[in-house]
């Protein structure tokens, strides 16, 4: 095991070896989760707090289940409804929670960099569950695990990430991870949803979807937020679906065995055709959800090990 960091704040600081050690451990948790006895004890005696400053069902449930399967005491807090409303700052909230001695803090926040800020102020391990448009590292890791299990490798693949790149933390983490693992990454989307200077990140940029999908191994769709559909970034939902929605016709430009991914929740008929999303021969969307739990178990397990190792060093 080489992954020795204190927090998992993003893909950016991870090495290839870090990524592989998380994925390798996650593979064993996939097996555990498929068995009848779904319990491990890697986090026994530990307290995991989920702080979600932004609404989430899937990611929060996934982290909660991951912690429970490994024996942690898990508490989830919907932060929009709590003290933030009373004017408490992020730092004060963090310090308050820190005083309760959690071991793992899972945080989602609407502002880029907020999780990094919080990590500076607490003693426990912090996992970024998505910060603004910055990073969503466990999503990129679960995508990587899905790809590796489907394609048998995680390198020299051609992968198209399609849709609203500009507002997507999923896209940023995936660009970084897939780049680190030496894949060819293409970004496909309307130029109004493409961040400036993105070509400097070592990716190819396409605004024609058919061109962008030509001969790729993996098609990764992104969710288009409802609030972006009002004419500000794209003219209309139907024009978007016509030009950038994934359907069988556009998918035909990809390799015959190309897989289709989506981080969810999907807008059927906006960015992806409903029938295609359900096509078990092409779509791996359900597998992504399954891999999510395993990857989060692995990430928390490794961070807990690092924490114990640091504590042991301190005691010695």
């Amino acid at each position: 095991m080489t992954f020795s960091a204190r927090h998992l704040l993003g893909i950016e600081p991870l090495s290839q070896a870090d990524i592989l050690s998380i994925l390798d451990l996650a593979d064993t948790y996939v097996a555990l989760n498929r068995g009848a006895e779904k319990h491990g004890d890697a986090l026994a005696g530990m307290t995991q707090v989920n702080m979600f400053f932004e609404a989430s069902t899937r990611t929060q449930a996934s982290f909660e289940l991951a912690g429970k399967r490994l024996g942690a005491d898990v508490m989830s807090m919907a932060m929009q409804a709590s003290s933030i409303k009373k004017g408490e700052t992020l730092i004060d909230t963090a310090m308050t929670l820190n005083a309760m001695h959690p071991d793992l803090l899972v945080v989602r926040h609407p502002h880029s960099g907020a999780v990094n800020l919080l990590a500076e102020k607490v003693n426990c391990a912090v996992l970024n569950a998505g910060d603004g448009r910055h990073e969503h590292p466990t999503q990129a890791l679960l995508d990587a695990l899905t790809i590796r299990r489907e394609k048998g490798r995680l390198q020299r693949l051609s992968i198209a990430i399609c849709g609203d790149i500009a507002h997507s933390r999923v896209a940023r983490s995936n660009i970084l991870l897939l780049g680190k693992m030496e894949n060819r990454v293409r970004l496909v989307g309307p130029p109004t949803l493409m961040p400036a200077g993105v070509a400097d990140l070592g990716v190819e940029v396409f605004d024609d979807m058919c061109e962008g999908l030509r001969d790729v191994d993996v098609v990764m769709m992104l969710r288009l937020q409802k609030e972006r559909m009002d004419g500000g970034f794209i003219p209309s939902e139907r024009e978007y679906y016509h030009r950038y929605g994934l359907d069988a016709e556009k998918l035909a430009f990809a390799k015959d065995d190309a897989i289709v991914m989506h981080p969810g929740p999907m807008n059927r008929g906006v960015e992806i055709d409903g029938t295609l999303a359900d096509d078990i021969n092409r779509s791996v969307i359900q597998e992504q959800v399954e891999m999510g739990v395993a990857v989060r178990m692995a990430a928390m397990d490794l961070l807990a090990r690092n924490q114990r190792a640091t504590a042991a060093e301190g005691a010695a």
Binding site: E12, S112, G113, G132, R133, H134, R172, P195, A196, G197
Partner: peptide, 15 residues
């Protein structure tokens, strides 16, 4: 300022 750095950090940026 819009560009590679702002895109990497996910910050709202101005040209």
């Amino acid at each position: 300022t819009s560009g590679k750095f702002a895109s990497l950090r996910g910050l709202p940026a101005v040209s």
